[in-house]
Simulated scan of single mutants.
Amino acid sequence: MPTIYIATLGQRPEAITVAFDRLHEQYRYEALAVLHTEPHVSAIAQAYSDLRAVCASDYPDIPTRFHEITHVDGEPLIDISDQHSAEAYYRGVLQVLYEYKRDGWLLHLMLAGGRKAMSIYAMLAASALFEPPHDRVWTVLSPEAMLAQPGQFHTPPGLRQQVQLVDLPLRPARIAPGTTVEALLERPLSRSRAFLAKLTPAERDLAELLRRNPYASNDQLGQLSNKSGRTVENQLRTIYDKMIGFLDKGESITDKRQALLDILRGE
């Protein structure tokens, strides 16, 4: 079976190629895949551009695939900043890993190139799908001399022995008998997640702010979000309109703010 090297991308892309070089000495990789969030306006934009260039020039014979992780509705995912984005990242990684497993690949996942939160969710996805010892999860420990010099995509000869690969212990998740990965991917979102997915980023931020400050007035919410009370009022009116359509209750809701809070709390 072919083996693919998969890595999560953060702001230090050098770890991806440094680890690949060492692992490729031991394993025959048929392809290289990179999991990343929005690649053009987020904090990883430069890392994404640099890594694409290095892969194209230094690994011309190894197919390289870049997989953008997005929200369920296709909206760009900038970073993991709340429960909504965390769930989207997990589902996106799970989907990519599942598709490779379905197509008959052995997977080696590298967790050194992304944010800690992203590595955690990628590890959770691997735990749901991987079959050790054929599938592996790795991280790489680089010496301070390399970390202090950004742009070193390959280990200098004198530091090679100081680059340590760690084969992380992998304990597959205990999924209930009869549960398929397809079912995990297709599991309906909670009511709160499903509703939040229908909001714009600005509306979602306001809804989350209201959830954390349920007794705040519009003016107080405005102060917390650097907006005017009138702007908050207008945004909430739009959110309420979407909520009415979501609940399919017409105008029968008497206390819209409380109804919104009930949804956000998962009630």
Rank of each mutant, 00 (worst) to 15 (best):
T231N: 14
H154E: 10
N226L: 14
L206C: 05
L210M: 14
S190Q: 11
F153E: 06
S225M: 08
T179V: 14
P172T: 04
S192L: 00
R212N: 11
G178P: 08
Q164M: 10
F195K: 03
D167M: 05
F195I: 06
Q149G: 00
G178F: 04
L159P: 07
N218P: 05
H154M: 08
V232L: 05
S225P: 04
Q152S: 13
V232T: 00
F153A: 05
A197Y: 05
V181N: 10
G151H: 11
L206H: 10
G158T: 07
Q220S: 11
Q235Y: 08
L206G: 01
P150R: 05
L236P: 02
P150L: 02
E186G: 09
Q162T: 06
K227P: 03
T238R: 07
A148G: 05
P201I: 10
G222L: 05
L170I: 04
T200F: 05
M146L: 15
A176N: 09
K227L: 15
L210E: 03
S228R: 08
R204E: 01
F195Q: 05
A183Q: 15
N213G: 07
L206F: 11
L159K: 09
L210Q: 03
I175T: 01
R160E: 13
S190T: 15
T200Y: 02
L185P: 11
L168Q: 03
V163G: 00
Q235N: 03
L147Q: 14
L196K: 08
R204G: 05
L196P: 01
P177W: 08
T155I: 09
R230C: 01
Q161N: 12
P214N: 04
R187C: 10
